[in-house]
Amino acid sequence: MTDDDLDFLFAQARVQTPADAGAAERFLARHRATLAPPPRRAPLWPPLLAAAAAVLAGVLVWRPAAPALPASAAYDVYQGTLGEGW
C-alpha cells in the first residue's frame, strides 16, 4: 500500500457520508432504548372518572323532565274551580 493509497483512505474516513449518519443513528437509538426506563402505560381511570362525573353532572342539571301530564289533568283542575255540580 503506497502513501497515496493511505492518504486517499484517510481523506475518505474524514468525510462523513449518509451511511455514517445512519449507523450513528442506529447505535444511538439502541443506546437510548437501553438507558431509558421501560415506558409506563398511561393510567386509564382519570379520563374514565372524568367522563362518568360529566355524565352524572349532566343528568343532575338537565334532569330528564317527567313526561307531560295528559290534558285531562288540566281539565280536572279547571273542573275544580267551576263550582259544584257541573
Binding site: 323532565a65 317527567a66 307531560a68 301530564l69 295528559p70 290534558a71 288540566a74 281539565y75 279547571y78
Partner: peptide, 11 residues
Amino acid sequence: RNVRPALGVAS
C-alpha cells in the same frame, strides 16, 4: 310537571 297543550290549556 308539565301538561300537554290542548283546547283551553296553555303551559
